[in-house]
Design a protein around this nucleic acid. Structure first.
Lengths: 193, 193
DNA sequence: TTATTAGAACTAACCAGTCAGTACTAAACA
DNA sequence: TGTTTAGTACTGACTGGTTAGTTCTAATAA
């Protein structure tokens, strides 16, 4: 059931990632999904509502499919988890013919200045993402995986900031290099002496 | 002379930074600058041409007013230059009531996927920015300011990626903290043992 | 004279969003 | 059994407004 609604969600998710929220018109979503405009407004009260629903879904999916399976994988060592996390991010961005950037980072830059609903959701998600990294770093400092002369929270913040910036560079230079070489350097800088 | 042209350039520069290129209409630029539409198209053949000219000007201004005066200030030690650079970036973003993000990073995310002219200019600028950082790091490794067990180019790339990501976080969280604490951590990680 | 500016009317495409009405299904009723 | 009712999903035509860009005439400044 709700075949049209799911088609809209799937098409819009792709278009928002590739072109951004504001640069994607409702008509383009309609064209891609093959749904009529009136049906669209039967399922969603506005384009903004659709965008927020897609963002929420994407966050939940990312937490379950990426964060929990890499940074939260307790069967690996803390440094092994971080490496796995970087690998999955690299795979996500390398598989694209022309890199579309981080869905969350793109939206944060595009929407934070003009829409508080998007900004608040993204700010909260970045915080929780940071927390997941922090836990991994904290454990790695105990086990001796990582140097322990820094605050885990500060290191986690640095890792996430760097990741978002590196993905921006991947998109701008059309090359995976800034992410792969940057993540390797982060791993080296974090190694215990 | 060219009073109208300069007014257009100044108004559009601010609007592009605050709302982005695509989200700023020509009519809004006209309203802010007090120039008529026919006059606008007398000076610029299109909105895209205006955007590219503003980007070029902004790059040159940034290289002269920020990069050369901080990272290129040979009267300071290499680590002193890097600290000065971070200070000037922090000041730029802290002075804003609500942070608008990095003009170059914003534009890179907004335009890289849809306009090759913007993407190429931004990619080239990020490369040259990286080179300026690399020179400072390289010299700092010789003087003993920085640890020298890493390639200066790779470190420079990491610094720039992190900076852009941190500014994204400043914009999203509406707080300067990710940038100030991140830059401090970078300085610590780079210190010679 | 030549460069610049003003003004206003215009186009064609696009924008988000609305509307009255249709089609189908399934349960409730009599 | 046949009839009513209700909810869900859907449609095509439409509205009012905005977009970048054009075309004209006429005034003003260097």
């Amino acid at each position: 059931m709700n075949k049209s609604k799911e088609k809209i969600l799937a098409s819009a998710k792709e278009l928002f990632h590739e072109y951004g929220f504001q640069q994607t018109s409702v008509d383009e979503i309609l064209k891609k999904s093959g749904v009529t405009k009136s049906n669209f407004y039967y399922h969603f009260k506005s384009k903004e509502e659709l965008g927020l629903i897609i963002l929420e879904r994407f966050i939940k999916q990312y937490e379950a499919d990426v964060l929990m399976k890499t940074l939260g994988n307790k069967s690996l060592s803390p440094s092994g988890r971080l490496v796995e996390f970087y690998n999955s991010v690299k795979t996500f961005h390398r598989d694209l013919q022309n890199p579309k950037g981080c869905p969350f980072g793109n939206m944060a830059i595009e929407m934070s200045g003009s829409n508080e609903n998007f900004r608040e959701k993204l700010s909260a998600f970045f915080n929780s993402w940071e927390k997941v990294i922090e836990e991994c770093i904290n454990e790695g400092m105990s086990t001796g995986d990582f140097r322990s002369d820094l605050h885990p929270g500060v290191v986690a913040q640095l890792i996430l900031s760097h990741l978002e910036g590196a993905i921006m560079m991947v998109k701008t230079h059309r090359s995976i290099e800034p992410l792969s070489s940057g993540s390797e350097t982060i791993m080296r800088l974090l190694k215990a002496a």
